[in-house]
Design a protein around this nucleic acid. Structure first.
Lengths: 222, 222
DNA sequence: AATTATTTTTAGACTTGTCTAAAAATTAGT
DNA sequence: ACTAATTTTTAGACAAGTCTAAAAATAATT
């Protein structure tokens, strides 16, 4: 069995992996198609192929899920993606909203030595510039605690740990508002009407919509 | 005109470029096929395509040569290849005989910011780990002086500037013989019979075949 | 200059990944 | 439970890049 996958195949595995985080059910053809901006018929073809290679479990009309082997590959790709993001920000002066497209290319470079050495060179980072956890060499991931800022109650204090949405527009909004990873947030008030919240962050008061709050991972301070 | 080339197209341009260094004539279909380890018929197809994109000059049965636009692209790829090689050796602990395959992949990453920043990060290196010149941002290259060790006469002294053959086996031979870029060589004796030479290098006497000497670029010391 | 050998091109086929349009299966709605 | 709506799959086509085998052009030989 040829385990040297095409970039396309790798992208499918990665898509299924990331869609699998939120659920334990099989991932629908349509969901994959939407994620990869392709057509359902193309997805069906590819899932069959990956199923033949025993990288996904697949029964007609029942959606797809990763096998152990498939998940291992997906995690390796994500590991590479995030390591490269760290490299770009830490050493090459990229902003956190500029790294995605380049990392999307770099993640497909095949060389275990490269990945290992890069990891070492970066001093074994645990999180990427967006706060996402970097899988270790064995594929273990410290998933986010999963607490969103939107769930924090008034008068509580938390620390920004990551962003869920990594689109450039969201990241630029955060930059312009002075919200960074590590920032301490105090929830001053929650508006019942639209669930927006008034917060104290980086020395200023700021009103943020629920949409924003739902996309910020935080660690609650006791 | 879509200027976003596939990796395959880029590899053809690079192959034609490197074959063009030794000659001013058009490059034959067969030569390209051999370089890329493919068939002549495939080369014909691709050359036509590149000709349509005005990246190569092509007349049936007359071989191919790069247009100004094609050469510019080829040089950019070579620039990226060599910058990555420097990165791998300088920062990621790769040996000079290990970098080629990885750089072959990395050279296709598309991001002008990445290339610029990498160049700056590496402090604008002028040569890669094999002594090959790195084109600058505008595509200018300091070609090798072109003097090979084989042309150096007995009792003359020279400095190793680069290797012509970058295969792993040749580089490992050099490592095991203590021959490095920058090494000072004195030609002690030239054997008329087989053109081998006895040299003094890195504190030892060494006999090398003409084959070896023909693959080492040197700068003659006056 | 005619013939032979080599190189190059063409023609047709195959693979990968994609698409559209139609058919089949599943899910939802009453 | 039975249509209706939605999702998924199939069938057939296409583009990129490759191949083999045969034809055409060029180069070499005598």
């Amino acid at each position: 069995m040829n385990l040297d996958l095409s970039q396309t195949e790798e992208n499918y595995l990665k898509a299924i992996f990331s869609l699998s985080i939120a659920t334990s059910k099989a991932i629908s053809t349509n969901a994959i198609a939407e994620k990869l901006e392709t057509k359902a018929s193309s997805v069906t073809d590819m899932i069959k192929k990956l199923s033949d290679k025993e990288l996904v479990h697949y029964k007609k009309y029942q959606g797809a899920s990763l096998t152990v082997a498939g998940k291992a590959i997906a995690v390796r790709i994500i590991r590479k993606h995030r390591l490269w993001e760290v490299f770009l920000v830490k050493h090459l002066n990229f902003k956190w909203d500029e790294v995605h497209d380049v990392a999307e290319q770099l993640e497909h470079i095949k060389s275990t030595k490269l990945t290992q050495q890069l990891d070492e060179y970066l001093e074994f980072p645990t999180h990427d510039p967006h706060g996402d956890p970097i899988p270790d060499e064995n594929g273990n991931i410290d998933f986010h605690t999963g607490v969103m800022l939107s769930s924090i109650l008034a008068s509580e204090i938390a620390i920004i740990m990551g962003v869920k949405d990594s689109t450039s527009s969201f990241l630029k909004y955060l930059d312009s508002s002075g919200i960074k990873l590590g920032s301490v947030v105090e929830v001053l008030h929650k508006e019942e009407f639209d669930n927006s919240m008034l917060i104290q962050i980086e020395g200023q008061k700021l009103s943020i919509s629920q949409q924003i709050a739902k996309n910020l991972y935080v660690k609650k301070q006791r």
